[in-house]
């Protein structure tokens, strides 16, 4: 409901606009953007891809994490124009064929790796970045390397369980209270 890409009225900011080519979730885009548009605002406002969240707009929370050429970055501090030619993957591009949940998405649901869900797209993109990097094996390592994603609801132990499942290619029972 009410999810329209935000367009700028004719004439506003057109003099400043710069042509940028980006692939977003596999779709090639030609955009004319003023240089001050962050990747995050481009996604959320102009493309109506609101899955990527804004929790601080200053690199301090990780909610805006997306993958650029397979690497996780904070989209709030990245000017979109500087990514010309890049491939961007957001949470909307994670699911598989026919909307089947990505293994991380499925694991987050099974392990209740969220509460309000606002940090979740960032956590999942970040976790995918972590898997791509290949530097984390142990739970302690995942913890450290997921510390750039704040979860104010405090779902951290469950987030770890979810990522560990995917890292180890298994489906474990969610932890239960005793």
């Amino acid at each position: 409901m009410f999810r329209h890409p935000q367009t700028t009225p004719k004439g506003v900011e057109t003099d400043d606009a710069i042509r940028v080519q980006l692939s977003v979730n596999g779709e090639p885009l030609d955009l004319d953007l003023p240089p001050w548009t962050s990747l995050l605002d481009l996604l959320r406002h102009r493309l109506a891809l609101t899955g990527t969240k804004k929790g601080c707009d200053h690199g301090q929370c990780g909610a805006c994490t997306v993958l650029v050429d397979g690497r996780r970055i904070n989209s709030c501090l990245k000017l979109a124009v500087s990514l010309d030619g890049a491939e961007v993957t957001t949470i909307e591009g994670m699911a598989g064929e026919g909307g089947a949940l990505h293994p991380l998405q499925d694991a987050f649901v099974r392990h209740d790796g969220f509460q309000c869900g606002y940090c979740t797209p960032g956590q999942i993109c970040s976790a995918q970045g972590l898997l791509n990097e290949g530097h984390a094996q142990s739970r302690e390592e995942i913890k450290e390397l997921m510390s750039g994603n704040i979860c104010r609801c405090g779902a951290y132990p469950n987030i770890l369980d979810a990522i560990e499942d995917v890292l180890n290619d298994r489906v474990s029972e969610p932890r239960m209270p005793e």
């Binding site: 009410f2 406002h45 609101t50 899955g51 949470i91 909307e92 979740t120 999942i124």
Partner: peptide
């Protein structure tokens, strides 16, 4: 859960 992990859950600023 599925709405939240796929980015479909719509929060206040996402009504546009």
């Amino acid at each position: 859960g599925p709405a939240k992990v796929t980015g479909q859950a719509q929060y206040a600023a996402e009504f546009q």
